[in-house]
Write a protein that binds this DNA or RNA. Structure first.
Length: 545
DNA sequence: TCTGGCACGTA
DNA sequence: ATACGTGCCAG
């Protein structure tokens, strides 16, 4: 079935999803048995088959740990790197062809979140998407041989909450859920951006979705960061218990890590609250989480699979979506904001993504228009403003189908969350206004397919693989608001529930993410949400309250 | 909430 | 040594 659908869509693009992980894993999971969707005609055009390019997320296991706990990424005025870092291993490129690799981060849904009772819950409607910016890998453009030679790292990419950021960092809103996406654009001479021949594909690894925060909400995430980020070594304690001896300093007395103390306090607080609140109300499993925290053990040890962890939800796992477009496009989609590099100019167009934007999914704009704002240049990477309105992609969700890894998608619908607005020239606009339009996003597109597809997706829930995946479930977070109270003062959290895994859907493997499943429920309140849903749905777990 | 300075670490 | 990436915490 999937295949069929996929094929239909295929014209324009094909997507493939791979699991993010290694092959092994992938295989295991074939969730729905998708036998690989694959079907992509393989090799037909060696050269041009951008769709045959395979991408594997580096350190997928680490990403999964974070994902299960509900990944949070700090955003600061000056710009903060992501951790885990977004690194990938690429294969299947034509060694001699030049490609531009870039990453953009699109809204995963249109909700605002809060962290309540130790879990993320929906706290309202998202702020309008801001001008999307793209992070172009500093080595771009480079030959396939170059990209395949070693890991491709986007670790210098920085996130900021400064809407007026002059450095070219990716601008995000705090307490919102986002999905990073990788785009591979062919940069041959013959395919300058903007040209009709421009081809590109998009890969989405759901396990890299995160909620942006100004300060960590879930102490489990804090611990994971401390334990795994070399730059945070100073906060590591000895594991045993809470105490740690700071021998480094030569101090012999046991020291209790500040972090631990703090967390414990919080944990206990939450724990109690959780029981009273969440637990009671919904009976979420979350309680467990609390437990863990207290235990101190946490994070690191936690099992990936453990229920607790799944906060985030996305259900989908880890897979990634991959879309390929074959160009079409027109837009200049990308404009380098301040990039020095020449290649930038070429690029442009990338896509029209819109096509796909289908409703249900989110699309992201990704590439779409350029909106560049100021020139920015960051040192190494170049950011481009993306733009979009379109966006396109669907949502991402890819995983749906399988969670696992590999799947294919055809369109590029990835997750796009919302449409973004580009403001043509303007740096930003108030979102609100735009917002309105956005939601409904209809597929603008031209392609017949797309439109069709989109509908179908919506209706069917399927679409291309990518879509499909997500499609299904598309569910937005559920509306039920339940629990968390007003968070009183703080609510730290915004997100909806990420936590508990709620389980997932029946269909899916529960594993990770499960997010999907849940979906079932969701109804969306607004129509507008629908499109959003896509990703989020994945999330799943969220409760909305 | 969000900010900026801090101590502590990596590179 | 410098530059800069971390989480923490007071404000």
């Amino acid at each position: 079935m999937l295949q069929e659908k996929a094929s239909a869509v295929t014209d324009e693009c094909m997507t493939r999803v791979q699991s993010g992980g290694e092959a092994d894993r992938l295989s295991d999971q074939s969730p729905l048995g998708l036998p690989t969707v694959p079907s992509i005609p393989s090799t037909s055009e060696p050269d041009q088959n951008i769709e045959n390019i395979k991408v594997v997320l580096h350190e997928r296991e680490l990403w999964k740990k974070f994902h299960e706990a509900g990944t949070e990424m700090i955003i600061t005025k000056a710009g903060r790197r992501m951790f885990p870092s977004y690194k990938i291993k690429v294969s299947g490129m034509n060694p001699k062809t030049k490609y531009i690799l870039l990453v953009d981060i699109v809204p995963a849904d249109d909700h605002r979140y809060k962290f309540c009772d130790n879990k993320w819950m929906v706290a309202g409607k998202a702020e309008p998407a801001m001008p999307g910016r793209l992070y172009v890998h500093p080595d771009s453009p480079a030959t396939g041989a170059h990209w395949m030679r070693q890991l491709v790292s986007f670790q210098k990419l920085k996130l900021t909450n400064n809407h007026l950021d002059p450095f070219g960092h990716i601008i995000l809103n705090s307490m919102h859920k986002y999905q990073p996406r990788l785009h591979i654009v062919k940069a041959d001479e013959n395919n300058a951006f903007g040209s009709k021949n421009t081809a590109y594909c998009t890969h989405v690894f759901h396990e890299t979705a995160f909620i942006s925060v100004t300060s960590y909400q879930n102490h489990k995430i804090t611990q994971l960061k401390i334990e795994n980020n070399p730059f945070a070594k100073g906060f590591r304690g000895s594991e045993e218990g809470d105490l740690r001896v700071s021998r480094l300093q030569g101090k012999e007395y046991p020291v209790i890590s500040k972090n631990m103390v703090r967390q414990r306090l919080i944990s206990s607080h939450n724990h109690l609250a959780g029981k009273l609140g969440a637990g009671v109300l919904s009976g979420h499993p979350q309680v467990l989480s609390s437990y863990q925290y207290e235990t101190g053990v946490s994070l690191s040890n936690s099992d990936p699979q453990d229920p607790i962890s799944n906060h985030f939800p996305q259900g989908r796992d880890p897979s990634l979506l991959y879309h390929c477009f074959k160009h079409r496009g027109v837009y200049s989609a990308i404009r380098p904001l301040g990039c020095k590099r020449p290649y930038l100019e070429t690029s442009s167009a990338v896509s029209e993504e819109h096509y796909f934007r289908s409703p249900p999914t989110y699309e992201s704009p990704l590439l779409s228009h350029p909106y560049c704002t100021e020139a920015i240049s960051s040192r190494e990477a170049c950011m481009y403003g993306g733009m979009e309105t379109e966006s396109g992609s669907g949502a991402a969700d890819t995983d749906d189908l399988n969670n696992s890894p590999s799947i294919n998608c055809n369109m590029w619908a990835t997750m796009q969350p919302y449409p973004r607005y580009s403001m043509d020239g303007l740096p930003y606009q108030p979102f609100t206004a735009h917002f309105t339009n956005a939601p409904p996003v209809t597929p603008v597109v031209p392609h017949p397919t797309s439109s069709i597809a989109s509908r179908s997706q919506a209706d069917l829930g399927v679409y291309n693989s990518a879509t499909v995946q997500r499609g299904l479930p598309v569910i937005p977070p559920s509306p039920t608001p339940t629990s968390c109270s007003p968070a009183g003062s703080r609510d730290r959290s915004a997100h909806p529930t990420l936590y508990h895994k709620k389980s997932a859907s029946p269909l899916r493997p529960h594993r990770d993410f499960s997010g999907y499943p849940s979906q079932s429920t969701l109804s969306i309140r607004d129509p507008s949400y629908q499109y959003q849903v896509g990703l989020s749905s994945a999330g799943t777990h969220w409760t909305d309250s």
